[in-house]
Write a protein that binds this DNA or RNA. Structure first.
Length: 352
DNA sequence: AATGCGGGGGG
DNA sequence: CCCCCAGCATT
């Protein structure tokens, strides 16, 4: 162990965290039992997503897809629909693909150990460890951003969390802290401490069960941890859409490009040159993502000729949506918001 | 090892 | 307005 904290009683601190968790665990729906399917869905939803934001999506997802079989039988589009608004849509696509893997490679039974769980699409080391520890009592540390933050503060550890070796480094540290018989409780304790108490900004150190063990707290240097050197960069992107209407119908298509909004639905990005004379409205929308600043232009076009409209839709494989029959559709948020402002009662028509 | 993927919250 | 948060797959 490459650490200068030889004197720290790692296991003692780990047991304190578990003891705190036993009394203070948040009453979350996926904690009502330890079914690996529910834990799996919750972990995927909660990747890059806060509980407050993901809870509603989790509940609706579980209600519609209560088990592997239900997810396996579903159409990918419908899985995407239930993911609408959560972002990182490849998570939903991989969830669906993993359900097929479980059905075909694991005879419909959720794999019951870290190594097998890791084989599933969309499951990496963190998620595999979380499921293996919570559901199968395997002593695998679920090292994520919370882990980095909590551990680096407790030990005032300068290890750079943007270093590719950080995962192994903090995994080794965590192993020393994990009570042999309660790995799942330990991992969940760190998750809860990290999100509720040891927050990135303005942590509630007064409520922390291990504040007397926390070197950063005792030395007043909480704000210096974790150490992270690399920054994310942002680029600009312009998108032009054509909202093409003929009477009560308009056109959409599922995105084939996956650099953003993977497999969601959008308006045409190009139309016949002469249609541009029929533009009756043009609106600019700005939308900010983590890695992109989007400048979206939406041109509304009224087409008189139904024949011309239908031919274009057929040639370019567009889905024709009737505003009157519309109910729900997986649009990217900026387009959905735009559409709501123009008219129609509801969005899209499900192709399934 | 580096890059890209959403969306929400806070100052 | 700008800043923060950060697993997994792909290359």
């Amino acid at each position: 162990m490459k650490t200068n904290k030889q004197n720290a009683d790692f296991l003692h601190i780990g047991k304190k965290l578990v003891k705190w968790y036993d009394r203070n665990a948040r009453p979350l729906p996926w904690r009502e039992n330890r079914h690996p399917y529910n834990i799996w869905i919750s972990e995927i939803v909660l990747q890059q997503t806060q509980v407050k934001q993901g809870l509603g999506h989790y509940l609706r997802f579980i209600e519609r897809f209560p088990d592997v079989q239900a997810l396996h039988s579903a159409h990918e589009d419908e899985v995407l629909l239930y993911w609408k608004g959560l972002g990182y849509y490849s998570r939903a696509i991989n969830l669906h693909r993993a359900a097929h893997q479980i059905a075909e490679e694991f005879s419909g039974n959720f794999p019951d150990n870290y190594k097998d769980i890791l084989q599933l699409k969309g499951i990496g080391k963190y998620t595999a460890a979380a499921i293996a520890s919570i559901c199968f009592e395997e002593k695998t540390p679920a090292v994520d951003g919370n882990f980095y933050r909590v551990l680096s503060r407790i030990f005032a550890d300068n290890f750079d969390i943007s270093d590719s070796k950080a995962f192994q480094y903090f995994s080794d540290l965590a192993i020393l802290m994990m009570p042999e018989d309660q790995p799942g409780e330990f991992n969940q304790a760190v998750m809860d401490i990290g999100s509720e108490i040891c927050k990135p900004k303005n942590p509630l150190c007064g409520e922390c069960p291990v504040n007397d063990d926390c070197i950063a707290f005792r030395t007043g240097s909480i704000s210096q941890f974790p150490v992270k050197t690399k920054k994310t960069k942002v680029s600009d992107l312009s998108l032009t859409y054509f909202f093409v209407k003929n009477k009560n119908q308009f056109l959409i298509k599922q995105r084939d490009s996956d650099f953003i909004w993977k497999k969601l639905y959008e308006f045409p990005m190009s139309v016949p040159e002469k249609w541009k004379d029929y533009i009756i409205n043009s609106k600019q929308i700005t939308h900010k993502l983590t890695h992109k600043n989007l400048l979206i232009e939406i041109n509304t076009i009224e087409i008189e000729s139904e024949k011309e409209f239908l031919n274009f839709a057929k040639d370019q494989n567009y889905i024709i949506v009737d505003e009157k029959l519309a109910d729900e559709k997986s649009f990217p948020k900026p387009l959905e918001n735009y559409y709501k402002t123009i008219s129609a009662p509801k969005l899209g028509l499900l192709p399934f």
